[in-house]
Simulated assay, not measured.
Amino acid sequence: MSQSGTPVKPSRSEFLQVRGLRYHVRHWGNPDAPLLFMLHGWMDVSASFQFMVDAMQGDWHVVAPDWRGFGLTERTHSDSYWFPDYLADLEAVIEHYAGDAAIDLVGHSMGGNVATLYAGVRPQRIRRLVNLEGLGLPSAKPEQAPGRFAQWMDEVKNRPLMRGYDTLDEVAARLQKNNARLSDERAAFLSQHWAAKDEAGLWQILGDPAHKQVSPILYRVDEMTACWSRITAPVLWIEAKDSDIWRFFGQHALMREEIDRRIAFIPKAQVEFIGDAGHMLHHDQPERLAQMIESFLAQPA
């Protein structure tokens, strides 16, 4: 991104019908160049990868969808979002652009979780995989089920709301509150893609509030690692040294030992760390991250 906040590599938008929803897909680069798919995280959008794409040196056709209920992709017509839907949505997008060919796939946070699960469920579809802090969640216990179902039903009846903002500057300030490393120029760019004006003139975050509802389905780490163990592609696992993702795990925060235990299920994993970066490492260190990803993708099979 230039000093003025203008993207070095402009993106273009396309809309597809994906499993009954109008899906927004963002593209960068030459359509005839090698495909590279990028998957954003929770409460984020595809434009979030702009800084990293700008820093990439190779000739790539980057394809980055907005997940259902995020960005410019249509919201669901039900009360909730189910994680397996992301897998099926991803497969539909991959088949549309790549047919049966094995692809290179990058996923951040929730997108990293989807990408890594998909790589184990459809190992033949992935050539190389990059996981950016897609750690999964703490494992739930069966005795949590009654309370979780009750909480979910309560939240369905009283759906969460998200506040609106008077100006884009306020949206940018909200982004910088989440990430103090985010420059004014980058925050201003992201705010234009992270929010849109409603009929009342307020800027609303482009994320369905239903994403904030608790899931009634308990998270089972053993099922996740069973999928990870079937991955045949080389995997580059990248974490930020100053990540604050732990705050989402409460008192059951994942410890280093548990993260390493999970990574050990991936047959061919290369683990790297990026300094002076938090969970939004593609915003904090896009140049370093782009270099690491391109070096990994260029390795011989």
Rank of each mutant, 00 (worst) to 15 (best):
L175Q: 08
A301E: 11
S46R: 06
I293V: 14
D284Y: 03
E74R: 04
L254K: 09
Q3E: 13
L72A: 09
R174V: 00
Q3P: 14
S78I: 10
E91M: 09
T232S: 14
V221M: 13
I266K: 03
A264I: 10
H108L: 13
V93S: 03
A33D: 12
F273K: 08
I205V: 15
F149S: 00
D32G: 07
H211K: 08
R174P: 01
Q251L: 06
P84L: 09
E155H: 06
F189M: 08
D198H: 10
G71H: 05
M153D: 06
A47V: 05
P31D: 09
V214A: 13
E257K: 14
W42G: 00
W246I: 02
G29Q: 05
V130G: 01
A187L: 10
E223P: 00
E74F: 10
Y219C: 03
V156M: 03
Q17M: 12
A264Y: 15
S46E: 02
L72C: 08
P31E: 10
S139G: 08
K241M: 07
P65D: 11
S2I: 11
A115V: 10
R174Q: 11
R75K: 14
D89Q: 11
T167H: 10
E258P: 02
H77G: 09
W28C: 09
H96T: 15
H27P: 02
Y81K: 12
Q57V: 01
N178V: 01
D222V: 04
V18P: 01
S2F: 12
P300D: 12
P142E: 09
D260Q: 14
G58P: 07
L168H: 05
L281E: 01
D32K: 13
D79Q: 12
S243Q: 04
E133W: 08
S109N: 12
A33G: 12
K157A: 15
R181V: 07
F83W: 13
E170M: 14
I266L: 13
Q176G: 06
F248A: 11
H24T: 11
E95T: 15
D244V: 13
R68P: 05
I94K: 02
E143G: 00
A64D: 08
L36I: 06
G136I: 07
W203H: 06
I103Q: 03
L21F: 15
G201V: 13
A92L: 10
Y86I: 05
Q17K: 14
S80A: 13
V106E: 01
D222H: 13
A64P: 06
F83Q: 10
L72F: 15
Y219N: 05
A253E: 10
A172V: 06
G20T: 12
E133K: 09
G69H: 04
L182Y: 03
T76E: 12
M52C: 10
W228R: 03
E143T: 00
V63D: 01
G107P: 03
A298G: 04
R128H: 08
M162R: 12
G5S: 09
P146G: 06
D85Q: 14
R148L: 03
G201L: 07
